[in-house]
């Protein structure tokens, strides 16, 4: 199947700064794909290149097999987008905005239908400057969706929203996926990416440093796993220290803690030691790491919120 979005060897430079360096990834039809990265990683520039807001220096961008640089208008009919830092005029109403932006497309939902779907019916005729942050973001999403695009691109869609508005927006993004749309979103909320995205790409300093499902990325992560074991009687510290791939062993009474770079072989050997020691396991916890661990390990950035 043709990918919803395919980016190959994308490069973009602003003066001396190379914002995007040979970025390549693809987004499958019908998935939610997250682009994760610290500030300045090149997320927004990548998205702006897809949308035709920036002219890449090099590389190819295809949306559903259509060359975005050669046929920008065709791509615009297929893609809906909600960007950061794009507001509306103070006095325009949601109804007028949806009618106006819908009129640019070959087919578009009615303003009434969009207002209802995005919970803005009671604010249909209220000026934009009277809407709350959450209502403005819902309107931005409605504008991105007004022409029923196959691909929806959202740049930091939940930035600055309270928890309730963020949850409502997550529900709406999941609904888009259920409707068969493809969603590409950038975010710097790792939790959001882990909850929402089928796959993610992590960008750092203009490069893709990892791509895959969140669980795969965690599994592939070079971060060490920690193991905590409580037994009915203390076990021999020196024996634990000889287990394969084990480091940082701490023994506190019946509790033993260690880290391992190879969970499987360490645990297999641990089971043998327990049998030989004639003790029983009270509890065993293996901390497999989080997406945040992966992010920190790959980007060496400050932990995102």
């Amino acid at each position: 199947m043709v990918p919803a979005i395919a980016i190959r060897q994308l490069r973009k430079r602003y003066g001396a700064v190379e914002a995007v360096r040979d970025v390549s990834f693809h987004v499958e039809q019908g998935e939610i794909f997250g682009v994760l990265g610290p500030n300045g990683a090149g997320k927004t520039t990548t998205i702006e290149c897809i949308l035709g807001l920036r002219e890449p220096d090099k590389g190819t961008i295809e949306v559903q097999g259509v060359d975005a640089r050669a046929h920008p208008d065709e791509v615009k009919h297929r893609v809906g987008a909600a960007l950061q830092s794009s507001a509306l005029q103070d006095k325009i109403t949601p109804r007028e905005a949806l009618t106006l932006f819908g009129s640019f497309y070959r087919r578009a939902s009615s303003a009434v239908a969009m207002l209802e779907r995005f919970g803005l019916s009671d604010k249909a005729d209220v000026p934009f400057d009277s809407l709350s942050g959450g209502q403005r973001q819902r309107l931005a999403l409605a504008l991105a969706f007004v022409h029923q695009p196959d691909v929806v691109i959202l740049d930091e869609p939940t930035a600055g929203l309270d928890a309730t508005s963020r949850r409502a927006l997550h529900d709406e993004i999941r609904r888009m996926k259920r409707d068969g749309r493809t969603v590409l979103l950038t975010t710097h909320y790792i939790e959001e990416a882990a909850q929402l995205c089928d796959r993610i790409a992590i960008l750092d300093r203009g490069c893709v440093v990892a791509t895959g499902r969140p669980s795969e990325l965690i599994e592939r992560s070079t971060a060490s796993k920690s193991v905590s074991l409580v037994t009915t009687a203390p076990i021999d510290l020196a024996a634990v220290q000889t287990l394969p791939a084990v480091t940082d062993v701490v023994l506190e009474g019946n509790l033993v803690r260690f880290t391992t770079s190879d969970t499987g072989s360490s645990l297999f050997a641990l089971m043998g030691l327990i049998r030989a020691s004639r003790v029983q396991i009270v509890s065993l916890h293996v901390n497999t790491g989080t997406l945040e661990d992966v992010f920190l390990a790959l980007t060496r950035a400050e932990p995102p919120k």
Binding site: S85, A87, F101, F104
Partner: peptide, 16 residues
Amino acid sequence: SERERGVWRRYRLVPG
């Protein structure tokens, strides 16, 4: 003022 607010960026996303 519309350009500063990003209104024209939004216009650029539409075909035409």
